[in-house]
């Protein structure tokens, strides 16, 4: 499995691109290039840093179709610069997938390296945010390699995926299978989206209980466990406020794990909003907690500032308590540019 998916997607992409020239039937269209720059300065523990490039990347998206229908959409993400390393980097970077359209009303097939459709992760894009959802704790990964079906049945949207279960570093066999079902309700001026997810995985990575916002430099301490997870997630637009929550229960090698995540976002205007969040995660070797606040201000259509404060603490069963306090200032600037082809 290792190193198979990425070359396969590249080869398929090149074949489809060359088909543009070789065949009157297939054409590449809707090419979009998305450069993105993310500068951050940090203060506090565990990592005070002066202003530096946190995420420098270029994404490429395009479609391949026959003039009547788009057969496939491609998304490739290239990393130019980041101080992130190891599993933390792999959780964040290198979306690399193709989505095949089987037709209106039929499921879409995604192949490649993509965000695992478990709980909030399936739809809440965390890549550019300072405060992250607790995926590193709840399932131990974010981007994974494999195949996914996306579609809808009646009022329910569904995602069904089979992936390697260990991001880009599958090294010891194993898998992860995930199913997510989601339904929307409009309740007067409110909007409610309720999701149910189930994940079953073999030999999946588990970080030891820690107070880190992102588990950097902990790759050597990662253990592997057979995981089973059940999650309920809520995305509630209550008036102008957005409340999100995720409740997870499950097992790591038959040992109980559970956690909660609560998120509140209030917009003051189109340009400015405030986010508060709290999370807790309990696993066999201890319990960790986090509280965070983040404010975001758009400078224009393409850039903005975020400032966050995060306090995290952990109670490992066999070690002394630890905590982390981190202030982060972010400036981002991004574009979407489509060349003539």
């Amino acid at each position: 499995m290792k190193n198979i998916v990425r070359p396969t997607v590249v080869v398929v992409s090149l074949l489809l691109l060359s088909a543009n020239c070789a065949s009157a039937e297939l054409k590449v269209s809707a090419v979009e290039i998305l450069p993105r720059l993310d500068l951050r300065a940090k203060a506090g523990q565990p990592a005070a840093e002066t202003l530096r490039v946190q995420q420098g990347e270029i994404d490429l998206r395009f479609s391949v179709g026959d003039g009547e229908k788009e057969w496939a959409n491609f998304a490739l993400q290239g990393v130019l610069a980041t101080p992130m390393t190891g599993r933390a980097r792999q959780m964040h970077f290198s979306n690399f997938y193709a989505v095949g359209n089987l037709g209106v009303g039929r499921p879409k097939v995604k192949v490649g390296q993509f965000v695992v459709p478990f709980g909030t992760l399936a739809e809440f894009a965390t890549h550019a945010l300072l405060l992250q959802t607790p995926y590193a704790r709840t399932i131990g990964l974010r981007l994974d390699r494999g195949v996914e079906l996306e579609g809808f049945v009646g009022d329910w949207d569904y995602w069904l995926s089979a992936t390697s279960g260990d991001g880009r570093t599958r090294q010891n066999g194993g898998y992860a299978a995930s199913l997510r079902l989601v339904r929307d309700w409009e309740l007067g001026d409110d909007f409610l989206r309720l999701g149910f997810s189930y994940l079953e995985g073999n030999n999946m990575p588990t970080f030891p209980t820690n107070p880190m916002p992102v588990p950097m430099g902990m790759d050597e301490m990662v253990a592997f466990a057979d995981k089973r997870r059940l999650a309920v997630d809520v995305d509630w637009l209550r008036g102008i406020d957005n409340i999100r929550a995720e409740l997870v229960v499950g097992q790591d090698d038959s040992k109980r794990v559970d956690g909660q995540w609560l998120y509140y976002n209030h917009p003051f205007s189109y340009e400015t909003d405030l986010t508060l969040q709290a999370d807790r995660w309990r696993q066999e070797d201890g319990t960790s907690y986090g509280l965070g606040a983040e404010t975001h201000h758009r400078l224009d259509d393409w850039s903005g500032l975020r400032l966050s404060y995060e306090h995290r603490w952990a109670h490992p069963n066999l070690a002394s308590d630890r905590s982390a306090d981190l202030w982060t200032l972010q400036y981002y600037r991004e574009y979407v540019w489509s060349p003539d082809i």
Partner: peptide
């Protein structure tokens, strides 16, 4: 597409 046109295929014009 189902709601607007009762079904169909689509492509992207940028």
């Amino acid at each position: 597409i189902k709601e607007f046109f009762g079904g169909g295929k689509y492509r992207t014009v940028l």
